[in-house]
């Protein structure tokens, strides 16, 4: 009995690591079996958007820097990936380059933001987002303009080509779990607490000794790198990219995911991106109605559900805790 308790308490600090490894392996094996066809495509897409949304969660959810450019940063990653891959650079290296490219571009917004007050950030990111779309659509020789560019060779892992959704799914799922793990560790680390202080009150952050500029910049770099990874994943999954993948409406969809998650919660962001990716598949056919629902959802969520899914989770957690406490008291009394 006691040795069992000791073993369990030894594992407690690593509970997140265990969830990451076990969850990633289990989901990567079973989800492609459970889902097929269109549903598996949605799973893949949810993973891709989930990764990008986790990046945005670092920038907006944790640091309160309102960025509308996350989709554009995905685009930077995707184009970097495809253009380097088509020039013969090997597979894992291209993904690293994609992350690096998006992180550098994101860092530019972070650098500008260090000089201005935080509400300028939306303007900076809007300028960036539109510039990326403009370059993608007009710079024909490099980006193929509105026609986009195709990925010439689909990468392989362990000799398996990732060309089918079933072959790609394990990679997407494992990447999502990895990014979730990184973001979750970031949130509880000193870095995450500093970001939380900045978003709570910059004066509070300053008197706690937080170098606000440096941390803002770091948040944009991390968020951008995640977006770059998501972009590379999208390029592998679709084998083709064009400006239409990375426009403002995608940026707004990603923001909606973080808002629905609430309170900078990473787990909430993953759940929200699964829900919203699934819903947006149905909404795509409705165009204007879909947009209307996005718009209404943002306004209503902000006003009526300020804590989002995280708030709901918090409530359930409290109920469970009270329940457990009552139960233990009753057991002890017997």
């Amino acid at each position: 009995m006691t040795s069992a308790v000791r073993a369990v308490s030894f594992l407690v600090p690593a509970r997140r690591l265990i969830v990451f490894v076990v969850g990633a392996v289990a989901c990567a094996i079973f989800l492609p079996v459970i889902f097929s066809g269109l549903n598996l495509l949605i799973v893949n897409q949810a993973c891709i958007y989930g990764i990008a949304a986790l990046g945005l969660n670092v920038i907006f959810g944790m640091t309160s820097l309102l960025s509308i450019a996350q989709a554009a940063l995905m685009g930077v990653g995707a184009y970097t990936f495809v253009l380097t891959a088509n020039r013969g650079i090997g597979f894992p290296a291209t993904v690293v380059l994609a992350c690096l490219g998006a992180a550098i571009v994101s860092a530019i917004t972070g650098l500008i933001s260090t000089r201005v007050r935080s509400h300028y950030f939306i303007l900076i990111t809007l300028a960036l987002a539109e510039t990326v779309t403009l370059v993608a659509a007009n710079d024909l020789s490099l980006t193929g303009g509105d026609n986009g560019v195709a990925l010439n060779t689909i990468p392989t892992i362990f000799g398996d080509s990732l060309v089918t959704p079933a072959a790609f799914a394990p990679l997407a799922i494992a990447s999502l779990f990895l990014v979730w793990y990184l973001a979750e560790c970031l949130r509880t680390s000193r870095f995450g607490v500093a970001l939380r202080a900045i978003s709570t009150d910059e004066y509070l952050a300053a008197v706690s000794g937080v170098a606000i500029s440096r941390y803002r910049l770091a948040a944009t770099v991390v968020g951008g790198a995640f977006a770059g990874l998501a972009g590379a994943m999208l390029a592998i999954s679709d084998a083709f990219i064009g400006p239409q993948n990375f426009q403002l409406d995608t940026g707004i969809l990603l923001l909606l995911m973080v808002v629905l998650a609430g309170g900078g919660s990473n787990t909430g962001t993953v759940i929200a991106s699964a829900i919203l990716t699934y819903l947006s598949q149905g909404l795509l056919t409705l165009a204007a109605v879909g947009e209307l629902i996005y718009g209404v959802a943002i306004v209503v969520l902000l006003i009526a559900v300020p804590d989002g899914l995280a708030g709901v989770g918090h409530l359930i957690e409290r109920q469970v805790r009270t329940g457990v406490r009552l139960l233990t008291v009753r057991v002890q009394n017997h």
């Binding site: 793990y181 990184l182 560790c185 970031l186 509880t188 680390s189 000193r190 870095f191 995450g192 607490v193 500093a194 939380r196 202080a197 709570t200 509070l204 952050a205 706690s208 000794g209 937080v210």
Partner: peptide
Amino acid sequence: RMGDHGRRDRAWWKET
């Protein structure tokens, strides 16, 4: 923990 920022512990790499 915000007040504790000056103590350089719980780095991101260590959490990970």
